[in-house]
Each structure stands twice: as structure tokens, then as C-alpha cells.
Design a protein around this nucleic acid. Structure first.
Lengths: 365, 365
DNA sequence: TTGAAAGCGCTAACAG
DNA sequence: CTGTTAGCGCTTTCAA
């Protein structure tokens, strides 16, 4: 692979100046057709592709938008792997009846956010750069990214406030899917609280007003905060003191849900169990099934997120489905808006969610 | 947001030259601690983040690697959506018992490729840019990307050969997960053919040597080609003329599998049905269940891909699980290797897959 | 319609 | 240890 061609090479070959080459590429109809052809031929022959760096420097915009996620659980600790070392193990291995891997974390849903973001970025002529939070946010990827993009979408809580302030001195930042932080930034979120409130009312109707237990995630989860808020407000509004509601704490994994489910089976069931995510709810269903507990007759169960396996669990799981693709699209839209109107007031958009009622919460059906 | 600060601003503020600022950022210990402190203070006060474009130009490398996917099925046609228009529909909607969406295409698996790639890129100090194939590949995203990255991973068949030649004149290209195309490029793939061969032998053992029917995808699928190859070789090796094997053609969706399954129920069952992907196999299982066909007693069924829902289907589906995360990692590793040794011979890596035996193919258990 | 030339912000010799 | 300076490859006036 010899030296990559530049405008100068193209200009030489076509017998024009570099300015003309640039014009052919950026504003084709300002150059005479014959000249244009010569230049395009030279481009093709040389396999010329303009340097994004040089272009970015000159134009003072990169045409790149960034999407920054919080870390995938445990992915950091993945062992080093060297496929080039040559010590491989043959073309396949055989295993019996493997379980689906639970270790991909709660982050599955982020795939759709990425899809939506990429789609919308493409529609607007941008390309997308992705980064995942890990290591010290003060020095890591996200700063790199900020230097290379025209704007940045940051998933809730993936970086601390002071870093955010720094970054936003260089590029516009849109906060995605977390609680609003002041109103310095543009913001896109979902109606988690409202949906959890409505779901809670639904559950109370099923249990005849008897209070559900709440299955929470780690204490510092911002998503969890909104869901809890919706839940507790609905509970209080129904005249039940929130302090009287049992709160169980898991870590968002299916196995933690199962463990808690087993405890409930042993110690006595609540009228309903409302989980702050689907995976814990599914774990609880596992425990209930094994313990001979009938859902929804003995206990009503609900989840939150709308992951696919919830539709085929036994029984199928009532949940709240997040509009992930739309979230990604919305974030890029807001960013594009900001880019075209740098001084407009900060925007805050809240996307509707979908409450999906299935057998796990439907006693009557 | 006022003008973004540059090295010059930082240098002024710290009372040093721009060279010193650059040193503090790139080789901190070549600078006297006192000076260094002053510079870092200025950086913090100004919220300075270096321009990736300028850096890229000067260093002649961007620190960015690109990952280019073929298009997600049907995602292009997604309607425009304007979240800023203000005509929203309220915080939530309620639906009864929604099915999981099948429309996310066969591309789910690509999420893990992305994860693996991002992980490995990060470990090596790169950031990742992603692009999805759509529109005319000659003018689209992928060329943009090629101009902005140090190297490019391209998923099989997402771009035509002549474009590939152009791109590889600028940056190293690694082809991922397709058949090898000559040996001009580095290449990472999986042992689909071998695994399908082994799986076919397994099925023949279960059926007592009676030949399975084959459920294929669209004719032009390159993945499909390898799977078919492994299948047909194993069939012939077993002494069965491949021409005598029924080949049914679907489009990789669950519903096409279901339709074909229904036809089989109506017209007569083969001893086994081997599908070239999981989703069609699951659709066939749906049809068999509804038609009162017992799997694996009346017909043995296998899939290919290892998607999660296959573990919880009725019965659980025998399949071949692809090492998607590893694929992503391997691609980046190969790319990094190429970057550090531009003139080394092209590399070709084949990753082992995992054959997962479950009830849908186990008559004996 | 085209060319000459001045940056864009940064890195990396090379001097001092 | 620090400053001066010459590019990196491109876009964009400004003249011709």
C-alpha cells in the first residue's frame, strides 16, 4: 500500500490546480464539464478519497456525531484474546442444551438506540462514532470523541457533571434517557414515571387494592429512580402509605430476581410483585414456577423494559416497552437542531412508552 | 457557546508556546512540573479539548477505526419522525399481549460484533466509527468513513468489489464473516461449513440415516452459501445424492418458516428439517406445534445462529452459535496487526463455532 | 472558469 | 526544558 493520494496528486494528474479539484468534489457545477471529467477520471484512477482530517480542519466541522454509552456490565473484564497467535481449538465445539447467556447485561436495549441514531444521522448526512464508558471518564474515550465530532449524545449518567461541562465547551451535548440535569443541556427522555404510575394502577385493580411489593435495582440507578417515583406516587395516591410497601433490592440480573423470588416463596407472597426491569421479573417467574406458585392467581408480576423474551415466558410478562429506536433518532434530531441553531433555548423531549399487558398481570382473562 | 479554545489560547493563558502545550498533552514528562501544572490549569479553565481533525492531519493518523455493516433489513424505509414538532401522543399507550417484533431482522447478532469491536478498539486506544450500508455504495457513507479512519472492517458483501479496491487504496480493509474474496484483503470468518457438516451428521444419526429437508434463505446470501456447502457435503458423504434432498426456500424470517412448516404438515413431513437460520426454524416449530406434530419424534429440527429465544422455544432448538463478540474483536485485532505491519502477508482467521444440542434434535434423550 | 495563497489547529523536528 | 517553524491536506476568498 503506497502513499495515499492527495489533492495534489489528483491536480497534477488532471493538469489543474488543487482548488479546481476541491471544487469538483464540493461544488461540481461551478466547473466546466470537460475539466470536471478530467478531474473525476484522475480521482478514479488514483483511488483518491479526501482526508477527513484535512477537510474537518478547513471546514471547521467534521460531519461526525458521537454516541456515548455507559459501560456494558462486566465487558471490561473480558480476557485478552489473540486470534493471531495461531493456537486455535478446531472449527467447533459441541455443548448440550446451553442456556442463553445472561451476561450481556441490561444493555441489550441500547442496540436499538444505536440503530435509530445511525439511521437519523445518515439521513442528515452525518456519520456516527460510538464510544462506551469505561475507565476514568476524565481522560477516556469521551474526550477523544468530543474532539472529533460536531456534537455528542451522552446516555444518562455515563459521565460526571464536571466532565460534561468541559465537553460542552467544545461541542453541543444532548443527554439521553436520564433525569434532567438542570437545563443547561438538550435532553431526550421517556415517560417512565408516568408509565410506571399507570402500570401500578393496573396492578392495584387486579389485586383489589392490595399493595404490591417492589423489586428495585441498585440504589444508584437513575432509570430506577424514575420508575420508583411513578410507582410510589401511584401507591400513595391510592391511599396506601408507601412506607408499608415491601421493597426488595436486586441487581437487575435474572439470577437476582430468581433469588428474591425464592425468598418470597419461602417467607410468604405479596399480592403482586412489580419489578423495575424485565430480567429480574423473569427470574422471579422462574422461582415461582419452581415453587409451585401460580402467576397471576397467587401473585401478579410485572416487569419493565419490554425485552423480547418476556413475550414467551411462562406466563408471558406484562411490561413497559421503551421506544428505543425512536430515542436514538430523537437524540440525533435534537442534536442536529442544536447545530443549526446554536443559541436556541435548551430543548427537552419526552417520548411515549408502551404498556404491554400480558398474562402475568391479568387475573381476569 | 463561544469560540472553542485552541492551543493558542491555552499557550497564551499559561504563558508558554504552543509547542509546550502540545508536549504537556502528548509527552507530559518532557516538561518541567511547574510548567506542566500551569498548562494543565489553563486547559481546565478553558475547557480545552484538542481538535481531532488538526491532530489527525499533523499525525497522519486519526486514531479511529471504522466498522461497516450491510443494511438492516427494511430500516431504510422507516418513516421520517419529527420529535421537535410538538405533536406528541401522550406519555404512553397500552397494548394487549404484544408479540416480540420480528422486524429487527437477522441483524440482531451484529450487536455483539459491534460490542466486541468496540472493546478491542478501546483496548488498543482507538475509537470506533460505525456505518450501515444503504444507498449507493459508490458515493455513500463508506467512502466518508474511509477518509476518516485508519482502517476499516467491512462485513461480508456490504459493498461491491470495485469500491473495495478504491477504499483499500486509502486504508487497510478487513473483510468480516463472508467467503474469502481472493486474498488481497485480511479476512476473518467462522467455521460455518464445518459446523453445518457436523450438525448434519448428528441429524443423520438421529434419523437413522434418513435424509433431512433443507430450509434455505434467499439465494444470494453468502452466509447461506457456506451453510449449504457444509450440509451438502455431509449429505453426499453419507451416500445420499444431494439432488434427492428437498430444498425449501424462505427469506430468513420467522413467518416464512412458519408458512413452510405448514406446507410440510399438509403435504407430508421429512425425517428432519435443517434450517439455515434460527428464525425460520422457530417458525417451523410454531407450525408443527399448531399442527400437532411432535418434535423431535415425528421430525427433527435444527436452526443456525444461536439466537436467545431458541433456548426457550418449545421444544428448545438445536443450533450453531456464532462467536459474535469474538468476531468483532478478531476483526479489530487483525486490523491493528495490519496497521503495525503494513507489508505483512494477508491474514485469514477462522473462528470456531459452538454446536448447541437441544431437544428439537435429540430423539434419544 | 480557474489559479494563487492564506489559513484551519496541531505535531514534530530543530535550535537554543 | 522550551520556543520557532515547517508542514499535514483541504476549503475558500480574492484576483486574474
Amino acid at each position: 500500500m503506497r502513499k495515499t493520494p492527495t489533492v495534489y496528486d489528483v491536480a497534477d494528474r488532471a493538469g489543474v490546480s488543487i482548488a479546481t479539484v476541491s471544487r469538483v468534489l464540493r461544488t461540481p457545477d461551478t466547473v466546466r464539464p470537460a475539466t470536471r471529467e478530467r478531474v473525476l477520471d484522475a480521482v478514479a484512477e488514483l483511488g483518491y478519497v479526501p482526508s477527513g482530517s484535512a477537510r474537518g480542519l478547513a471546514e471547521r466541522r467534521t460531519g461526525v456525531l458521537g454516541l456515548y454509552f455507559p459501560r456494558f456490565d462486566a465487558m471490561d473484564e473480558v480476557a485478552a484474546l489473540d486470534v493471531l497467535s495461531g493456537d486455535r481449538v478446531g472449527p467447533f465445539t459441541i455443548v448440550q442444551d446451553a442456556e442463553p447467556r445472561d451476561d450481556r447485561g441490561s444493555m441489550l436495549f441500547q442496540d436499538d438506540v444505536l440503530r435509530g441514531a445511525e439511521l437519523e444521522a445518515w439521513r442528515r448526512g452525518f456519520v456516527l462514532m460510538v464510544g462506551i464508558g469505561r475507565g476514568d471518564p476524565r481522560t477516556s474515550t469521551v474526550r477523544d470523541m468530543a474532539g472529533r465530532v460536531d456534537g455528542l449524545v451522552v446516555l444518562a449518567r455515563s459521565i460526571p457533571d464536571d466532565v460534561l461541562v468541559q465537553l460542552s465547551a467544545r461541542v453541543p451535548v444532548v443527554i439521553l434517557a436520564g433525569p434532567r440535569r438542570g437545563d443547561r443541556y438538550d435532553h431526550v427522555t421517556v415517560s417512565d414515571a408516568e408509565a410506571m404510575g399507570e402500570l401500578t394502577r393496573h396492578v392495584l385493580a387486579q389485586t383489589g387494592g392490595r399493595a404490591p411489593a417492589y423489586l428495585a435495582g441498585p440504589a444508584d440507578s437513575p432509570d430506577g429512580a424514575q420508575r420508583w417515583q411513578g410507582f410510589s406516587e401511584a401507591i400513595e395516591a391510592a391511599g396506601v402509605p408507601i412506607a408499608s410497601v415491601p421493597v426488595l433490592r436486586g441487581d437487575f440480573t435474572r439470577s437476582s430476581g430468581r433469588r428474591i423470588g425464592e425468598e418470597l416463596v419461602a417467607r410468604g407472597l405479596p399480592a403482586a410483585l412489580m419489578s423495575s426491569n424485565d430480567r429480574m421479573a423473569l427470574g422471579a417467574l422462574d422461582a415461582f414456577r419452581d415453587g409451585g406458585v401460580r402467576v397471576p392467581v397467587d401473585v401478579v408480576v410485572t416487569g419493565f423494559d419490554g425485552i423480547d423474551v418476556g413475550a414467551v415466558s411462562a406466563p408471558p410478562l406484562t411490561t413497559v416497552r421503551q421506544p428505543m429506536i425512536q430515542l436514538g433518532r430523537a437524540a440525533i434530531q435534537v442534536l442536529a437542531h442544536r447545530l443549526s441553531a446554536p443559541d436556541a433555548d435548551p430543548v427537552s423531549v419526552s417520548l411515549p412508552v408502551e404498556i404491554v399487558l400480558r398474562r402475568s398481570s391479568l387475573r381476569s382473562s
